[in-house]
Design a protein around this nucleic acid. Sequence first.
DNA 1: CTGCTTTGTCCTGTGAGTGGAAAAAGTGGA
DNA 2: TCCACTTTTTCCACTCACAGGACAAAGCAG
Lengths: 396, 396
Amino acid sequence: MRRMTARPANAHQARLLTLLRDGGPNSRAQLGDQVDLSRSKLAVEVDRLLETGLVVADGLAASRGGRRSHNIRLNPELRFLGVDIGATSVDVAVTNAELETLGHLNQPMDVREGPVAVFEQVLALAAKLRASGLAEGFDGAGIGVPGPVRFPEGIPVAPPIMPGWDGFPVREALSQELGCPVMVDNDVNLMAMGEQHAGVARTVADFLCVKIGTGIGCGIVVGGEVYRGTTGSAGDIGHIQAVPDGRPCACGNRGCLEAHFSGAALARDAVEAAQQGRSAELASRLETNGGLTAADVAAAASAGDATALDLIREGGNRTGQVIAGLVSFFNPGLVVIGGGVTGLGHTLLAAIRTQVYRQSLPLATGNLPIVLGELGPTAGVIGGARLISDHLFSPA
Amino acid sequence: MRRMTARPANAHQARLLTLLRDGGPNSRAQLGDQVDLSRSKLAVEVDRLLETGLVVADGLAASRGGRRSHNIRLNPELRFLGVDIGATSVDVAVTNAELETLGHLNQPMDVREGPVAVFEQVLALAAKLRASGLAEGFDGAGIGVPGPVRFPEGIPVAPPIMPGWDGFPVREALSQELGCPVMVDNDVNLMAMGEQHAGVARTVADFLCVKIGTGIGCGIVVGGEVYRGTTGSAGDIGHIQAVPDGRPCACGNRGCLEAHFSGAALARDAVEAAQQGRSAELASRLETNGGLTAADVAAAASAGDATALDLIREGGNRTGQVIAGLVSFFNPGLVVIGGGVTGLGHTLLAAIRTQVYRQSLPLATGNLPIVLGELGPTAGVIGGARLISDHLFSPA
DNA sequence: CTGCTTTGTCCTGTGAGTGGAAAAAGTGGA
DNA sequence: TCCACTTTTTCCACTCACAGGACAAAGCAG
């Protein structure tokens, strides 16, 4: 099938596309209520969108007391690809133009294998999704990578945990391979966009999205827009000092948050605790699996293991301290906690909340919800779809 | 004299006013080069601005190789009032429409006396400026107060160091008294706007402006706009924990940055050092003046007093640690240090720089200037003028 | 005084967009 | 089944912002 290549011709059309994306199929009349355009003008723009094929007719709407209106919707054959590359696994999903996930695949892998090896797997997963009949092709793709990105060009810059990726033209390369427009961003920013679009942050203009995975990062949303900083490294909170003269960190400093709490740190601490005999639960798991991950700690904790709970609480305290500082500084309307370690759930959340509510000023915390992300592993891929749709649904 | 009350009728006029404010008197032709409007349209809008009286003719421009163009400029009789209320003193200045300060007064006072007493003094200072012939009246005023402000209404909310001000309708009250439009903001935000308009931050879109006075605050500028947070308390970094289990702070916590370094903390530490006989220099000053301030420490330091230098260095380290965290998080393009303690100058700056460059990641610090503010005590009042002019020079 | 350039003014054409009229399509009551 | 009323859609005339060309005015360089 030929892919759509049309773009909205003006801001009105862009607005309409966004409304259809976020609100689903809709009648012309109801769209008219939302866009502040005369009926005549609206009709013209809708007709033009129908001509481009981005939008299709969709039967008649229910009556609102008079003549029934004609429904329109985004072309149901449009497909976006969301790719969330983590440190140890990759998520790939297809969505329709309304950003509903139609299919989602996850596969373990190691980013350190480098971009070529990783994208081979990503393309294989994308092909599998195509083969299962969910898509005949893709109209756009949004890619998240676990490190800072020069956003306009879609190129990772100096990513600490994926050295081989520095300067690799991700956007360019994938755009070639997939034959569609591609946008690249930090995985944390994608998660923030995902939660903003379909998760807990739907109504909040300014919020923080803390992702605790192999590392720790933070998506920053200002006035509904992701803030990326001067060099694209905004939100890189993993290397904020959490403990003076604390543990040595891979970055060369001591006491970084990430060195004290993150998926990697937690696994390391758990192994240590098991070997020192401080936790029978963890020790038995270590023996069975030959290693421990954050998930093991989560399981041990929910089985009531005191040491595991302590590890989580301790880490939550550290993280909470750092977040408390960020809350004072940024005064967000919401803090979302997400990432691989959300399995740690409410123990972690409680520890974080305690620290933040204790350390930040009442004016900043007074009405500040601190919640777990709603979308789990789909946040990133939905965010990817959102990223590329924002791009494609803006005037060329 | 009747004050100007006109506002630009559309975005074009607003743009022209801003260009004239920031670029000074200019020829119609040169304006045309900057605004992307046809000559006809430009002429119409300029004529309308001339009719309102906001803009006046200003002779002929130099030839650019052909017919000489007519210059126009903002009405030279326009006057803005900038007011910067600090914890222990108040600055009041008049500017013209190009935001050049024509007169500037400073007077010691104590915010804790409450809004009524303070505004009596502010109005007296404003009257003095009027009496000296610098202004016949004011077309607008921008007020900075040392605490969080509900910006749209111009009302301080729960300000820790000025309890009597909570909920006082500053904007409303001053607008009545002065008979002109008034905008109110946090003093730190005004300083940031001042440095952005006429100081070191002229060309930077995203930067931080750390003000170290009686307390410590931080102005946040995102994409050229001041970011105020959800409840107007963004940038309140004085109560970020800098020292685990450190000194008790007025806010009820321990180890807040402000408890360890700020004008107030520095004075207290200096008195302690003098009394313990650790510094002859400070002791003699204490005896002479009956008390010590940050300025005394600065003087002692520049006289080579080791204890004073240590105090400054120590404080700079603490502040630098906190800023390092903010730099990692926010990835600004510039950090400006200002406020009353800038007398501490390069000793302080060096300490801050050391910490930031050591603790933040290279990608964030690679090209990050950390500099002292350029405008000193005028930053706040210029920021105030800028605030109100931004308001008045936008379509009604 | 003569070309050449820039600036300012005038005027007409164009295209976006509004708002009213009227037709089309429905609803619900008598 | 008819009728009064509502909502939706289309059509059309009218307004308005603005561009861009023509031309006059003003200045420069020989």
